[in-house]
Amino acid sequence: MTITIYHNPACGTSRNVLALIRHAGLEPTVVEYLKTPPSKEKLRQLVAAMGITVRELLREKGTPYAELGLDAPSFSDDQLLDFIGQHPILMNRPVVETPLGTKLCRPSEEVLELLPVDKLPPFTKEDGELIIDSGARRA
């Protein structure tokens, strides 16, 4: 199974998602999107696959969102994608792509829906929170 994670190693949620994927015995392709930003077309594909708006992909905290005036509703999706291309930190993370779907995995346990396993053993996040995978959503 091909799994790709658009990852920021400085982000705890992103690190937890990567660890959860590996906890499932899978090794994803890791794209450090701050070093290797996805193309505008790839961003379009990811947004479409997730069924979200470009605006929902934007991250405000710790980014130049406010300085760029991105809270103004007048920006088109095309313009917002250009901003993400110029400032990759604006892309919310982590985004995970698998044959089972594509998802912005916040909180980190959202990735469980994309993994091809019935039920993972318990997993402890960096902050000590325990994730118990019921497997119920994979009917």
Results as ranks from 00 to 15, higher is better:
residue 21 I to K: 00
residue 21 I to F: 00
residue 21 I to W: 00
residue 21 I to D: 00
residue 22 R to H: 02
residue 22 R to A: 01
residue 22 R to Q: 04
residue 22 R to L: 02
residue 23 H to Y: 06
residue 23 H to L: 07
residue 23 H to G: 07
residue 24 A to C: 00
residue 24 A to W: 00
residue 24 A to T: 00
residue 25 G to E: 02
residue 25 G to K: 06
residue 25 G to T: 06
residue 26 L to K: 06
residue 26 L to M: 10
residue 26 L to S: 06
residue 27 E to V: 09
residue 27 E to C: 05
residue 28 P to T: 06
residue 28 P to S: 02
residue 28 P to D: 04
residue 29 T to F: 03
residue 31 V to L: 06
residue 32 E to N: 10
residue 32 E to A: 12
residue 32 E to I: 11
residue 33 Y to R: 02
residue 33 Y to T: 05
residue 33 Y to Q: 03
residue 34 L to N: 02
residue 34 L to D: 03
residue 35 K to M: 13
residue 35 K to V: 14
residue 35 K to H: 12
residue 35 K to F: 11
residue 35 K to T: 14
residue 36 T to W: 07
residue 36 T to S: 12
residue 36 T to Y: 08
residue 37 P to M: 02
residue 37 P to S: 04
residue 38 P to S: 09
residue 38 P to C: 05
residue 39 S to V: 02
residue 39 S to I: 01
residue 40 K to F: 12
residue 40 K to L: 14
residue 41 E to V: 09
residue 41 E to H: 10
residue 42 K to M: 15
residue 42 K to L: 15
residue 42 K to T: 14
residue 43 L to E: 02
residue 43 L to Y: 07
residue 43 L to G: 01
residue 44 R to H: 15
residue 44 R to N: 14
residue 44 R to A: 15
residue 44 R to F: 14
residue 45 Q to H: 11
residue 45 Q to C: 04
residue 45 Q to N: 07
residue 45 Q to I: 02
residue 46 L to C: 05
residue 46 L to D: 12
residue 48 A to Y: 11
residue 49 A to M: 08
residue 49 A to C: 03
residue 49 A to R: 11
residue 49 A to L: 04
residue 49 A to T: 08
residue 49 A to Q: 12
residue 50 M to Q: 03
residue 50 M to N: 03
residue 51 G to F: 10
residue 51 G to A: 15
residue 52 I to G: 01
residue 52 I to F: 09
residue 53 T to F: 11
residue 53 T to E: 15
residue 53 T to I: 07
residue 53 T to A: 09
residue 53 T to G: 14
residue 54 V to A: 11
residue 54 V to R: 02
residue 54 V to Q: 03
residue 54 V to M: 12
residue 54 V to W: 04
residue 54 V to C: 12
residue 55 R to T: 08
residue 55 R to D: 11
residue 56 E to W: 09
residue 56 E to S: 15
residue 56 E to D: 15
residue 57 L to C: 05
residue 58 L to A: 12
residue 59 R to D: 08
residue 59 R to G: 12
residue 60 E to R: 14
residue 61 K to P: 06
residue 61 K to G: 11
residue 62 G to Y: 10
residue 62 G to K: 09
residue 63 T to C: 13
residue 64 P to V: 07
residue 64 P to D: 14
residue 65 Y to D: 10
